[in-house]
Write a protein that binds this DNA or RNA. Structure first.
Lengths: 116, 116
DNA sequence: AAGTTATATAACTTATTGGTTATATATATC
DNA sequence: GATATATATAACCAATAAGTTATATAACTT
């Protein structure tokens, strides 16, 4: 996943309306009108949010007559989660190195310690 | 984690410069100047990015003389990941229900099927 | 064919973002 | 005390975002 793709995914997730739309899609495909109903917001506003979600690959659109059913997709979420997991792992590994170092220093510093 | 906190976290992650700053912090605390060095960007721009990251709780600032060392924090990431994981789980559960339904229909529809 | 419904697009407004330069503040050093 | 360094703040600019209303387009209904 390219940085730009990560950008698109996090941008899409960074809005409570869009996350609420996704949450509603967990119970299956919905039309734009169905998605718009619960929000105090115009239909074009919802269409704009859907475009942002689609651009991130978080939803795909079908065609059923005049309706354009919206369906959620998991792939970008998995890629984003994977970036975050890798990062947290790297952080915790570095904390652990620091912890061991502090522990070693407390046990009794020697001329071999990287600091001192 | 409140929706506003999730907003702050995803907004902070939705910029490649900020993700790069976080990545650099994986190797330990850094001063603002150290963080700014690799970027083709002014120091105030980096300070602004740090403020966004701090607002999300993704970094904390220390004090060491005139330096304000920046340190990464994992907590908001874990909360965000948790939201995403829950969501993916919900989605996959609903897909699975749909899949079983389609399977059942293909095996031979009956008057008890929820559609038909 | 006329009217209705579902959705998208356009044009506009306001607020926010990401950057800039210039400057202020606080600490360190000579 | 004067100067230098680390960081923050202010004022500004251009681009983007999130909403609006009005309108266009396409498909469905009668």
């Amino acid at each position: 996943m390219s940085p730009a793709d990560l950008d698109a995914t996090f941008i899409a997730l960074a809005d409570p309306t869009r996350r609420a739309i996704l949450a509603r899609l967990a119970s299956g495909e919905q039309t734009v009108m169905e998605l718009a109903a619960p929000f105090a917001m115009s239909q074009p506003a919802i269409s704009k949010h859907l475009k942002v979600l689609e651009h991130a690959g978080l939803v795909t659109r079908g065609r059923d007559g005049q309706k354009r059913p919206v369906r959620a997709q998991t792939e970008p979420l998995k890629a984003a989660t994977s970036w975050m997991d890798d990062y947290v792992r790297a952080l915790e590994a570095s904390y652990q190195r620091l912890d061991s170092l502090l522990e070693a220093l407390q046990a009794g510093p020697t001329s071999n310690d990287p600091i001192n």
